[in-house]
Amino acid sequence: MPLFAQITNLLAALFLLVAFAMLAQRRIVHLINLYALQGGILALSIVAVGYGTHQESLYLSAALNGLLKVIVIPLILYRLVRRLGLAWNRENLLRVPTLLLVGLVLNIFAFDVALPIAHLAGTINRDTFGIALASVLLSLLMMIVRTTALTQVLGFLSLENGLIFAATSVTYGMPMMVELGIALDVIVGVFILGVFFFHIREEFDSLDLHRFDRHEE
């Protein structure tokens, strides 16, 4: 196996590891760090794929991803967390091992589903598609089990990471326009959510979603 393919595989594995870590992490600040790390791994793996297949356009995509997900969004989130006073907040997550076990089962499922799809693709790193799919499912799981709005947003952002990763592994990335569009969407989304958080907190005095449920009644 050529070196860059090995590197892509390794990065894919790390990507998945970070997804699992995010599932199990209680502290919000660490969660943001992990998100930044995941973005970094994503950017690196896009670079590796670009290098391996000599597609210069992927470098641009990698730079964009890196800039956005390692620097801009984490910075915004940090600021949000500080302004909201959540810096050392920790969530009550019950039974982390159980959660991880569910994640594991999801993983087996995703790998199994991905095998036939991956064989259709002709890309060098098609094996990593299963990992991408698994991390998408893990992000969804994270959004389901988390109770505060901010962590759900983080789950959503990591889901988007997984999607980009899947796209890179099956088709060497989406067309540039689509990717730019998504990037713009994400950044606007984060801004809007940030604004929303303040409004939510002024309204309900908390970001805990259980409270929203009660107010609905």
Binding site: L17, N107, D127
Partner: peptide, 24 residues
């Protein structure tokens, strides 16, 4: 501590799964 070690266990199992998936 069970949580800590449970996490270690899951990560190790994940390694095995990744091994099967990537075939390396």
């Amino acid at each position: 501590v069970p949580e800590f070690l449970g996490t270690a266990f899951m990560v190790a199992v994940l390694g095995i799964l990744v091994h099967f998936l990537l075939g390396t």
